[in-house]
Design a protein around this nucleic acid. Structure first.
Lengths: 179, 179
DNA sequence: CTTGTCATGTAAGAGGTTACATGATTCG
DNA sequence: CGAATCATGTAACCTCTTACATGACAAG
């Protein structure tokens, strides 16, 4: 349940409501979940049961009460333990590679069109991530080191798609030369 | 349900049993599922209901009957349609980047140890994938072009982790210089 | 004498997604 | 007048995982 640690990390910077968390996660490229209510509200209930977060409820006129969650000392310890835990390798699910694996069934022009469309999708993604880096709307910068880390993380998220694009372009050239 | 198309692709090369499919998928890096029975046997029943595969049952002494699945003409058409369908971007889930995102909580030595352990994991993965490429146990090579495609796909699977490793090493150096 | 292979299948549960439900307010 | 924002929460469903169940035979 990595989303629990994501939430703890976010609350470690500042108290937030479920609604705040949902927006941050839904709009983030790093936090790769959809940011759906089900998961977030359920996680918050769980974290509260475990005593890792505390809640304050603020009544509002004409709006449901706002529940502001804060990390507890126990939550801080739990987060720190996770930060020191064994790194996990990235999990990459790429249905396109599977498509390519069977793509020898296609004619030359169909295959090239497929690769071209994939390259186009990747270019769009690279551009989009570049735009978001210019205009981020969640990026903690409490220390110089944190600023450096976030900068390199955001760069990496974009670079991955760029490297994928470089690979497709190399492959396209090679296939054009060996018809 | 990409696993259905994975199975159709495998059956398009040769008839296979559920057990065969399970082994191929479980041992593959490209086909990223665990290869569990539940999914595979259930997918085969589904494909059969849709008329995309046919079954022949062979009775065996002292063993459960072996069900050999083959792709049907309808299945071939369905596979071809999928091959021509819109490419989907890879989905990368990297809990380590999230760990890093909050890692400014750690001391300098703890952070470097974390990065070092991640680098070590990546190196192991790169080595493992290199070994498997030398000694693959599923790799269709019906045409020159298919051989080329599979070669580039397998290279890419390894290269991704290599590029991840390069990035971590760059980051480690940078952090050592800016303490 | 335990582990692995062959070969089918079921069960339980974690994790994640989209859509629904409510209801006032504000902006274009 | 419709859509977005604020703010909580529920329901249904899909995907995927681990573990269980059966049962023979072969190899270390």
């Amino acid at each position: 349940m990595d989303i629990q640690y994501t939430i703890l990390g976010l609350l470690n910077a500042q108290p937030l409501s479920g609604y705040d968390l949902k927006k941050i996660i839904a709009d983030s490229d790093l936090f790769y979940w959809s940011g759906n209510n089900n998961q977030i509200y359920h996680s918050l209930v769980n974290l509260h049961k475990q005593g890792l977060v505390s809640v304050e409820t603020f009544q509002q006129e004409n709006l449901p009460p706002r529940k502001l969650y804060s990390i507890t000392p126990a939550g801080e310890m739990e987060l720190r333990q996770w930060l020191l835990s064994d790194p996990v390798l990235p999990e990459i699910r790429d249905p396109f590679l599977i498509q390519l694996a069977w793509a020898d069934q296609l004619h030359g022009d169909e295959l090239d069109a497929l690769l071209a469309r994939y390259a186009e999708e990747l270019e769009m993604q690279v551009r989009m991530l570049g735009q978001r880096r210019l205009n981020p709307w969640y990026r903690p910068a409490r220390t110089k080191r944190e600023t450096l880390l976030w900068s390199r993380i955001e760069e990496r998220l974009q670079e991955r798609y760029q490297q994928e694009l470089d690979w497709v372009n190399r492959l396209r050239n090679e296939i054009l030369k060996n018809p």
